[in-house]
Write a protein that binds this DNA or RNA. Sequence first.
DNA 1: CTGAAAGCGCTTACAG
DNA 2: CTGAAAGCGCTTACAG
Lengths: 350, 350
Amino acid sequence: LTTVTIDDVAELADVSIKTVSRVLNNEPNVRAATREKVLAAVKQLEYRPSQSARSLAGSRSFLLCHFYDNPSPAYLLDVELGASSICREAGYHLIVERLDGSDPTLAASIGATVTALRLDGVILTPPISDNTAVLDILERNDTPYVRFAPYMVRNRGASVAMDDRRAAYEMTGLLIGLGHRRIGFIKGHPDHGASDVRLQGHLEALRDQGISVREDWIKQGYFSFDSGVAAAESLLTAAERPSAIFATNDDMAMGVVTVGHRLGLDLPDQLSIVGFDDTPGASYVWPRLTTVRQPVTQMAAAATQMLISGEATRSKWPAGKAPARLLDFEIVVRDSARSPDAASAGRRRD
Amino acid sequence: LTTVTIDDVAELADVSIKTVSRVLNNEPNVRAATREKVLAAVKQLEYRPSQSARSLAGSRSFLLCHFYDNPSPAYLLDVELGASSICREAGYHLIVERLDGSDPTLAASIGATVTALRLDGVILTPPISDNTAVLDILERNDTPYVRFAPYMVRNRGASVAMDDRRAAYEMTGLLIGLGHRRIGFIKGHPDHGASDVRLQGHLEALRDQGISVREDWIKQGYFSFDSGVAAAESLLTAAERPSAIFATNDDMAMGVVTVGHRLGLDLPDQLSIVGFDDTPGASYVWPRLTTVRQPVTQMAAAATQMLISGEATRSKWPAGKAPARLLDFEIVVRDSARSPDAASAGRRRD
DNA sequence: CTGAAAGCGCTTACAG
DNA sequence: CTGAAAGCGCTTACAG
């Protein structure tokens, strides 16, 4: 088993290796007939250029990397789904590295990977997307990056996002439209920038509808099922409890559902619950969750495209302004939110 | 920003580049004092050897790849969790590539990646782990691989697995031990080797307990929620229905739970349901699922270790026999399986 | 224990 | 439109 090299192709096609290189890199100034000859030889020999040699000699490695810390499983899968397909089309490959966001050597570790691999670009998801030490080291190494949902640290580098604020605004509006006035809210993990943005959207919707904010109905959560359970317990065992709860991710919403059942509440009649993310489990619980679907796969595809096309490269930014792509979310209406009036019509409350 | 090379280190340490290379690769025959000098220079310059140069000049690329097709999100996350940590320790990097298992060009596509990147090893998860065309092309390229749960095609290459047969045997035994005699079974996707193995374990348990097999209580599923719903509908609307259903993954089990609720069955009293996988959702549904926890993270760590250490390399197999690691599963007992007697004691049936 | 030379398979910069 | 030469940053094979 000998590896086929550019020399073999050049010899078979009866041209120089430089011409083979031109054809493979789609450079101009090659006669059509010459191109055909080369392509035929490539095909016949099943030639695949060595990534190492290309990287060492040239300026590209054809390697992208996704650095992440403890994402939800579905989020990771969607990111890879979007990134992997774009990579394949362009002859790039996706490396993944899981890191501990609280590790003080995080940035150094990313710097090591970036220089060892000569990465052509980096994808950063929350909460690493808001880690300024990481952004610093990436910029020092001249490595393009795209940040997902870059809410805590703004105006730094290319990004992809959806409008979390508006999604939360509309979800709260949906509950209000159903007739809810007493709405509980469970915040996300404080390390994630989206957490605060979603809260802001919620508060705006309340204000726009003239509903006063009840601080005691806003609970801290951490995006985990257990934190949803804890918040729901405190919300639902209080003297006066909300008629609806907006949990800012599905895992927490499912915690609320569990507590609701445990307390013997008739869901959704006695308590409406809405989530955020549309994880697979959202349609498995009863009642099936009304939630926000994030365009994670499309965000990943867009990010990858920005990296490969060079849009994410600082020196190519139009007017020095980093590109930011905003994608559409979707509110998926299922069974977990209902009008509180319907409930009182169907049964006595208290 | 100039990149630091081995020459810079050699100059600062006042040795030849060959000596630097020796130190970095832990080769013998370097005086301790020399080693110290080199290490100090490496540290001072923050030198990181170029992966491309090492790969081009040497025989290793320090690159591993996980090829997969439509895994469950949690499965993918666990594989990456296990593989990523071992890779980092050893200075390797993990590439991921999502492919369509039914695409006829699948093997060719993997072959292309393998040769372009000079991959040092490959991780294959079901159903790709049983694709013989892929195994052929990997062997032709002399690329070591480790297969996950390689049940359909046996005795080909290194593998990691847990004892799916015994897990299914024990789970069925648990149901029988609870007093169930009428047990429905939902098979997995026919493309996954584990599907048949789990069925065999189930049938053995039935036979060992002297319970005759009811073919009409064995339904085809495809590992999806919807296929679980379909199978459950057919199982539960029949004239005579089982008192327990063993769905061979959690997604299908959650489909059964949903149908159970829809039919107004009191769960788990009127119907016990058990699953397989222990996905996050398993503890979110009500009743919380009794299920089998697979050691996916440990399997991935073991596979990665086999690849990096060389155990998975054909020429190094002891006595020509491929290494196979079997890891322990765990049956997680929650609330979804209960004795049918308790149910009849608590309420009249029919 | 250490080093000088050659070469891995490409792209770059230059020449024609 | 095409090619000869040099070089990317390492490891291999060999010499001492």
